[in-house]
Amino acid sequence: MTRRASATISTQPSVTDAPLRYRLIHDQLKNAIALGKIAPGLVLLEGPVARVFGTSRVPVRKAFEMLHAGGLLHTFEGRGYVVASPDGSAPPPLRAPLSESALGFDEAHAPLALPSNSERIYHAMEAAVSIGITFGHFRIDESEAAEAFGVSRGTVREALSRLRDLGLVEKSAYSHWLCGPLTARAVAHDYELRVLLEPAALRASMPHLSKEKLTLALAEVERAIDEPDSIDADALERIETALHVECLSQAPNKKLLGMIGHAHMPLTVNHAFYNAFNLHPEAGTLVEHRAVLKHLLAGSTEAAVTALADHLHAGQKRTLQRLKVLAVLPEPDLPVFMHRIS
């Protein structure tokens, strides 16, 4: 394991990187106007445009305001805006039924599949909690988190409930959200469960696995081994998910899969560790993944099961080593809504 750059831990939550509806609507309308696909003078109203994009009027209103400021839309005596002429002037209003083709789209425009507020803040909270729990025991204040993210408490509660499903947070008898500390004992307990359950799930899932998907997963691992510099934390997470989630997902016992999911906290913390320190994947991890996938493709069920168990034992040792590394580092600046208990 080698660093690509100097390590800095940043757990301050941010939702500004998430795609915003008004920005996507603005960009697509701007492009269509610039290419002359929307007739000059066409009257644009919030409601019809919102229906085309499958969204509410609020982001459409914001997009219109930006286009107006950029000179691509003009106001007039009636409701809405008119599309500017190529020379930037305001042509006579043209009222016509609004459709995808009228907006310059070649085909029906799918509703904007954008994450909900809870989805947008979930990953920021997951990263903060994953790093924070390695430094101690914390209480998460719903109200402060809602204020920090600019969302409702219900939205924060939804994201925290998902983190509870991962085992990253818990709710006390007094309805306080708590997280940490992540101890060597907790890691050992999770790995003990995984060593018992994941091989069983793999054995049950094996007859139903797609050779095409296994081949793709193996190709990604091979590329990571050959070009480790190209693999970041997110790419490594996809590799881990392919083996520890997708290869087990065909097991018919869904209760078994649910118990495995609750023991995946080390995977989440490892992802945060790699992301925080901008690290390459370890060669041993990738070689172990390759062994399991090769046995699966060869149809050698028991060899794959044994290789998976060996990988989990080795993974436990690596995770405990990461905890030791974090233990000697200064505590990072954690979000304001995380209050140290011990």
Results as ranks from 00 to 15, higher is better:
G47R: 12
S143I: 00
E100T: 11
A204E: 13
V60I: 12
H289D: 12
E100R: 01
A184W: 05
A173D: 12
V325S: 12
E65T: 13
D141H: 01
R21S: 15
F138T: 11
A201F: 06
P111M: 06
R153L: 00
K62I: 12
D27A: 14
D234A: 14
E302N: 10
L248N: 02
H137A: 08
V49E: 10
R162A: 06
L193Q: 14
L218R: 15
S56T: 14
P59V: 05
S130C: 10
G132R: 03
A204N: 07
L196E: 15
N278S: 14
P13T: 09
L45G: 03
S249V: 04
T16Q: 11
R290Y: 02
R61H: 10
H189N: 08
V60Y: 07
Y81A: 01
I131E: 12
T183Q: 08
T134Q: 09
F273W: 08
L236A: 11
A251D: 12
R3W: 13
S130V: 04
T2D: 05
P97H: 03
D165C: 01
L202Y: 07
S249K: 12
F273V: 09
L44S: 07
N31P: 00
V269H: 02
L256M: 13
H137P: 00
E107K: 13
G78F: 13
H123P: 00
M265S: 09
K317N: 04
L103H: 08
L202A: 08
V156G: 10
T155Y: 01
H313T: 05
G80R: 08
R238L: 12
R162G: 14
A5F: 13
P266V: 13
G299C: 10
D190Q: 11
N275K: 15
V151A: 13
P181W: 04
R185D: 13
L72H: 11
G180N: 10
S152K: 03
T155K: 01
I260G: 02
H264I: 00
D234N: 14
A110D: 15
L114W: 06
A303I: 00
I239R: 10
P93G: 00
L103F: 10
L279R: 06
A314S: 15
I225S: 05
R51D: 15
G54W: 11
L257A: 02
V52C: 10
R153A: 05
A39R: 15
E240Y: 07
T268F: 12
S14D: 14
H189D: 12
Y81G: 01
P48C: 07
V221W: 02
I260K: 02
R139W: 00
